[in-house]
Design a protein around this nucleic acid. Sequence first.
DNA 1: TGACTAAGTCTTAAATCAAGACTTACTGTC
DNA 2: GACAGTAAGTCTTGATTTAAGACTTAGTCA
Lengths: 153, 153
Amino acid sequence: MRWDSLAKENCSLARSLAIVGDRWTLLVLREAFLRTRRFDEFEAKLGIARRVLSERLALLVDEGILKKMLYQDSPPRYEYRLTDKGLDLYPVIISLVHWGDRHYAGKKGPPMLHTHKSCGHDFKSVVTCSECGEGLKARDVTVRPGPSARKHA
Amino acid sequence: MRWDSLAKENCSLARSLAIVGDRWTLLVLREAFLRTRRFDEFEAKLGIARRVLSERLALLVDEGILKKMLYQDSPPRYEYRLTDKGLDLYPVIISLVHWGDRHYAGKKGPPMLHTHKSCGHDFKSVVTCSECGEGLKARDVTVRPGPSARKHA
DNA sequence: TGACTAAGTCTTAAATCAAGACTTACTGTC
DNA sequence: GACAGTAAGTCTTGATTTAAGACTTAGTCA
């Protein structure tokens, strides 16, 4: 299977991964969540090749995950900011961070602590059911075809 | 930056992505969550090149995310099953699915429905704070260096 | 005028992936 | 006993993507 055909699959995971499932995009988005906004900043913090960065940013703008905003008139300069659709990726990123904290942090503890402003505590992310509010576990979930099902998951 | 050096970065997201952040691994894991277990099944359902599949499965076994279990003696045949560490990736996958459902499903609705067995309802995943139980939003979180901080996020 | 800045584009070599043929070690059938 | 079939890979080749860094453009500042 070629990668571009992934987006056409009738599977929400495949369609999400067609956009953020490459080696760099989620790291670019991590920086965006940490309020990195300019091309050179992304490059410096990530150590990503400029060509690849340029291509990823353009894709993310195309997809409406980042938007370009003018911050200086002459010469015109733009910065990249998360849209609401981009902010919606926060659960994905915090879940990956939490998984890394849990399984790779070692004895010294995690490299970063996350504080929930509204309650004031350092937290871990917990994925819950929208209907009953309980924590979700993979083996407590069943899956069935939805309204736009064709094949596959 | 070369990809293998990502794992050595002092950032839980980078370390997670060093393992699951390539073009195929999360799709392989989707299949594992859907109870696909054998090499040929993974190949048939994903359309992945055998060489790449073989390499990814080996990496996932190395990392303790899948385990090989003998299911037949002669010739010896193994199947791949999620370990607890692998099951811990469920929040990542369900969050990606939910994001895809939300932003790419179109009018007809999502391709798959997920039912929470213990409450009986179809659900969406919600990421919450382990301390107060409220839903988490990116802009309601602050970040600071943790016990093993060196640099970066 | 010349150095500097920000945001890219271009080039080349190295690494990774797609597609499919080939291999190995057995089982079950004629 | 030969032969097709099965499951889980490995190998080969050409196409695609990435890394690294030089180059470009349009303007500012000393």
